[in-house]
Computed example of a mutant assay.
Amino acid sequence: MSARAVHGRDSSSERAEIGRALGASLAEHQPQKDVRVMLDPDGHPFCLYPDAPSSG
C-alpha cells in the first residue's frame, strides 16, 4: 500500500478531481461536509482533507 500527499489545492473537492484522474472513485457515504472519502481501484478507502489555514 502506498500513500500520497497532494499539496497546493484548497479544497477536498479539487483533490477529489485529482483522485478520480488517478483511478479512485468517490465513496457513496460522505460523513463530513469538508472531507471526501474516496476508494482506490482495489476498493480501499482513503480521505481527502482541505489544506489547514496557515497561522501566519
Rank of each mutant, 00 (worst) to 15 (best):
M1G: 09
M1E: 14
S2N: 15
S2R: 10
S2T: 10
S2F: 08
A3I: 06
A3N: 13
A3G: 14
A5Q: 05
A5F: 11
V6N: 10
H7R: 04
H7V: 09
H7L: 10
G8W: 02
R9N: 02
R9L: 14
D10N: 05
D10V: 00
D10S: 12
S11I: 02
S12A: 13
S12F: 01
S13L: 15
S13Y: 11
E14H: 08
E14T: 00
R15D: 03
R15N: 04
E17G: 07
E17S: 06
E17C: 03
I18T: 13
I18L: 12
G19E: 09
R20S: 15
R20N: 11
R20K: 13
A21N: 15
A21C: 14
A21K: 14
A21V: 02
L22F: 09
L22M: 05
L22T: 06
L22N: 05
L22V: 04
G23R: 01
G23F: 00
G23T: 03
A24P: 06
A24Q: 02
S25L: 04
S25A: 10
S25Y: 02
L26F: 03
A27Q: 10
A27F: 11
A27K: 07
A27H: 08
E28H: 12
H29G: 03
H29L: 15
Q30V: 15
P31E: 14
Q32P: 04
Q32R: 09
K33Y: 01
K33A: 12
K33D: 04
D34A: 05
D34M: 00
V35F: 08
V35W: 13
V37I: 05
V37Q: 01
V37C: 03
M38C: 01
L39S: 07
L39P: 01
L39W: 12
P41I: 05
P41D: 15
P41T: 12
P41Q: 03
G43K: 15
G43I: 13
G43L: 15
G43T: 06
G43N: 10
H44M: 08
H44R: 14
P45I: 03
P45W: 09
P45T: 10
P45D: 02
F46N: 12
F46R: 07
C47M: 13
C47H: 15
L48M: 12
Y49E: 08
P50C: 00
P50D: 05
D51S: 11
D51A: 11
D51G: 00
D51Q: 09
D51V: 01
A52M: 04
P53D: 12
P53K: 03
P53I: 07
S54A: 02
S54T: 02
S54E: 07
S55A: 06
S55G: 01
S55F: 02
G56S: 07
G56P: 08
G56F: 04
